[in-house]
């Protein structure tokens, strides 16, 4: 900032003042300005990307996932600039009209330009925060495609692979990649004939072995880089256990405890409750679930419903399934919940 801001403001011709400031800039500053000018070009070329060299792609990821952009804009920009999806496909993936997605993208591009969001890999001290923003966007894309939108999930895995190629020594990148591969390995078993199949009922012969192997090797790489695991690495370790023939639910519970300490997230606590239930104590799991404040989070209600059902509290289970059904967002989830509900009717005399 100028040494005397008010004096700077008083100067009659603002542009002349700015020119003056520019004259005083060092050569390094001038180079920085030049780089800014290039940002404009790069973001305009967003539509004909793909040939961009590795180094430029990495910068582009950080630009697209800058925290000064709204999350949905980060997601859309990342998919458009680095994924292989057209604006129409992204719009379809997120259930918005193509025009809306077009506006969202051009607004985001305009903000990058006007606000001066840098086209660069962030400085070391910013890197941990910025990298976790990038990983969050990739994971969000993956989750969007978790049940019904396999194309989005594949796109997220592609982005994860790209990141792992571009930054070879970040354990959390491998952790996220492993997590996505391991979850995706169960895709064919998770939704069958349009209906969600819970883990315990999945046909393991439908698991994609190659993806499980790739996921486990990414997990191994992450752990080799840093033995103290971050949140994605822990989740990948959980997913790896869940790909086993006989799942060690006690071990899964321990990992969720660890993850909960790291993130303080009630959603993680909810998952820990599921692990506790699978390890054999539905009662203790329900106690934990009911202590959580998760409002209208749909999996809170479906988990609670399932636990009530296992404990034979059918009336309450039905109510909870009904609420979960109202909150469900994909057809496969709806079909599964509707089936559970229909199973609860005949067994009840009231």
């Amino acid at each position: 900032m100028p040494q005397y801001p008010v004096a700077w403001l008083v100067t009659t011709g603002r542009n002349r003042a700015i020119d003056g400031l520019r004259r005083e800039r060092t050569l390094e500053d001038k180079t920085r300005l030049l780089r800014n000018d290039r940002l404009t070009v790069t973001m305009d070329e967003i539509d004909l990307d793909d040939s961009t060299v590795a180094d430029e792609r990495l910068k582009l990821i950080f630009t697209c996932c800058h925290p000064a952009l709204a999350t949905e804009a980060q997601v859309a920009l990342t998919l458009r600039a680095l994924g292989g999806l057209s604006t129409r496909e992204i719009a379809r993936g997120f259930l918005v009209p193509e025009e809306t997605m077009k506006r969202r993208l051009s607004r985001a591009k305009a903000k990058i330009k006007a606000a001066g969001i840098p086209f660069a890999v962030p400085a070391d001290r910013l890197l941990p925060d910025r990298l976790s923003a990038v990983l969050a966007v990739v994971y969000l894309i993956f989750n969007e495609g978790y049940t019904d939108r396999g194309d989005l999930a594949s796109e997220a895995i592609r982005l994860g692979r790209l990141l792992a190629e571009l930054m070879t020594d970040e354990p959390e990148i491998y952790g996220l990649l492993a997590l996505m591969l391991l979850h995706d390995s169960r895709r064919e078993a998770r939704v069958v004939a349009g209906e969600l199949v819970p883990l315990a009922y999945q046909d393991r012969s439908r698991y994609d072995r190659a993806k499980i192997d790739a996921g486990r090797s990414a997990l191994g790489r992450a752990l080799a880089l840093r033995p103290t695991a971050g949140p994605y690495v822990i989740q990948a370790a959980i997913a790896s256990l869940q790909a086993d023939e006989n799942i060690d639910w006690d071990e899964v519970t321990v990992l969720y405890e660890h993850l909960e300490r790291l993130t303080g997230s009630p959603v993680v606590a909810l998952n820990r409750a599921v692990a506790i239930a699978e390890a054999g104590s539905a009662g203790r799991a329900l106690e934990l679930v009911e202590s959580l404040d998760l409002g209208d989070y749909r999996y809170f209600h479906s988990t609670r419903a399932e636990l009530l059902r296992r404990l034979g509290r059918d009336d309450e289970a039905r109510q909870a399934f009904e609420r979960a059904l109202r909150l469900a967002v994909t057809d496969s989830e709806r079909r599964f919940l509707a089936r559970r509900l229909s199973e609860l009717w005949p067994s009840d005399g009231s």
């Binding site: 900032m1 400031l21 300005l33 800058h66 000064a68 001066g116 969001i117």
Partner: peptide, 13 residues
Amino acid sequence: YYVLDASDLDEAL
């Protein structure tokens, strides 16, 4: 308010 001369948004932030 401050009037700030920054080369990009990260510097302003």
